[in-house]
C-alpha cells in the first residue's frame, strides 16, 4: 500500500481495502506465516515423533 489515508485523501482511499488484499500486501505478515507454518507442522511435529521412538526391548 503506497498511501495512507491521511496523506493521500484521493478517491481510491474512500474505498475500504479488503482484508485479504491487505494480508497479501503485507510481506512481513506473509513472512511470518511462511516460516511458522512449516516450522510447526513439518519440523516440530516431525521432531516430536522422532523423540518418541521407543527403545528396543
Amino acid at each position: 500500500m503506497a498511501k495512507s489515508a491521511k496523506s493521500a485523501p484521493d478517491a481510491a482511499q474512500a474505498v475500504r481495502i479488503p482484508v485479504m488484499q491487505k494480508v497479501l500486501d503485507n510481506p512481513f505478515l506473509l513472512l511470518f506465516l511462511g516460516v511458522v507454518i512449516p516450522t510447526v507442522l513439518y519440523i516440530m511435529w516431525g521432531l516430536i515423533e522422532l523423540t518418541q521412538i521407543p527403545l528396543a526391548k
Binding site: 481510491a12 474505498v15 481495502i17 479488503p18 485479504m20 488484499q21 497479501l24
Partner: peptide, 12 residues
C-alpha cells in the same frame, strides 16, 4: 505483471 495492478482494489 511487471507493473502494479491497475485497479487499486483488485481483490474484488
Amino acid at each position: 505483471a511487471i507493473h502494479p495492478p491497475e485497479q487499486t482494489i483488485w481483490w474484488n
